[in-house]
Amino acid sequence: MKIVVCIKQVPDTSEVKLDSKTGRLMREGVPSIINPDDKSGIEAALRIKEETGGSVAVVSMGPPQADFALREALAMGCDEAYLITAKEFAGSDTFATAKILAGALGKIGFDLIITGRQAIDGDTAQVGPQIAENLNIPQVSYVEDIEVNGCALTVKRQFEDRYHILEVKTPCLLTALSELAPPRYMHVRGTVEAYEKEVQTLGFEDLAGTFDPSCIGLAGSPTSVYKSFGKKPKGAGEMHKNLSADEAVSLIISKMAERHII
């Protein structure tokens, strides 16, 4: 089975701090990582390959620096890596990104596509399903377990109050939860090999004819960011630093009573 995993290089949002004066993001020194759900997707793909054979390719659309994320995926054990990058692709929203990625995936070829459920910078969870729609293949999102039986997959699909055990035939697309497969570390030999393997670059010309050029980039994206901003800190309430536990309790009780909570 040929598995292609789509990954995104993202800033580690748990490391991002806000400048409390300007309300701006302080991005300096924030590490770039492989998006956690995507990394779980890589691990799941590698496990399938180890059990049933086949190959794992990894694809990322982004600026040239995304090469680093692809090399990490190679070091984990992926066989091939593709960097989708071009100035024409810049500013693409999820609709346009999915058009480009679907074009590239059609060119690369696949039996199974795995994406992360969502990226921690945008949190949209949209690109996976939109790739599947563009390729006209079935999708299963929020996947927590995958079992391969020939060209059919048995997957566990998570919902808030239940799960489904689904059978789906390849070709198809799955979106991985980070619970799917806790990722392995890169091994030393893998790290060395990762820099000997080639990351293939697919630019605008390479993908010509795989999508409508009027549907990509900033101009081809249906959505745009109007404004972005920080939240104004809510006016702090009253704070008490030197109360005994009993004093704290009577204060809490009186506040709750005042507000008819008790």
Partner: peptide
């Protein structure tokens, strides 16, 4: 909507 792990808010428009 919140973006960037809730660090910022963004207002999005749609032309279609």
């Amino acid at each position: 909507r919140p973006a960037f792990g809730g660090n910022i808010m963004a207002t999005i428009l749609c032309k279609t």
